[in-house]
């Protein structure tokens, strides 16, 4: 196999790397974020166990980035034929898939952590004024906006790749 063939056919690795970045990094971020909220929530619940449900809502918020990451990874896999017939992918196309994973991977990673911090602060709202839960959720959701935009960016990039 000469170098030209190699360049033309081995894009699959890069596509996998792209999906790994999307699902992996965003997933790590969500794990950290959810963990941060969980710690704060446990503190609130020691004082008043009846607040479990409300804190759980806040804890779920930074979990979405991981889902967005998996979503993009899944779409990449569908496109490169992991579930069905394998598709021939060139190096250039592989690089494109790699880049598709970057927005949601990176932004998901960072934003989930910061959303977790915002939601953890929201837990102290629940501790003192449980009726203001929605405000705490909105603060956390403000952070998520950028993960949503990154998801959109990744999706549109992916949609633009022609095989």
């Amino acid at each position: 196999m000469n170098i030209v063939d190699l360049m033309n056919s081995n894009g699959l690795y890069l596509a996998f790397l792209g999906s790994a970045i999307a699902a992996g990094l965003a997933g790590i971020g969500s794990a950290i974020g959810v963990g941060i909220v969980g710690q704060a929530a446990a503190g609130v619940v020691t004082e008043d166990p009846s607040k479990f449900g409300r804190t759980l809502l806040l804890q779920a918020l930074p979990g979405t980035q991981g889902i967005y990451g998996l979503l993009i990874a899944f779409l990449i896999w569908t496109k490169i034929g992991v579930f069905g017939e394998a598709v021939e992918i060139t190096m250039q196309q592989g690089l494109m898939f790699l880049m598709v994973g970057i927005p949601i991977g990176l932004v998901g990673f960072i934003s989930a952590i910061y959303q977790g911090k915002a939601a953890a602060a929201g837990c102290s709202i629940i501790a003192k004024r449980p009726e203001e839960l929605a405000k705490g959720m909105v603060y956390a959701a403000m952070v998520e906006t950028y993960a949503v935009l990154a998801l959109l960016a990744s999706f549109l990039m992916l949609n633009g790749i022609r095989l």
Binding site: T64, I67, Y68, L70, L71, F74, L75, F83, T145, V148, L149, L151, L152, F155
Partner: peptide, 23 residues
């Protein structure tokens, strides 16, 4: 205005996750 793009992105998330579950 761009903030409303979340309507699409979140709708996309539901659909694709549902597909993932089925698959």
């Amino acid at each position: 205005v761009l903030s409303y793009s979340r309507l699409f992105a979140l709708g996309l998330a539901t659909g694709v996750i549902g597909t993932v579950v089925n698959a």
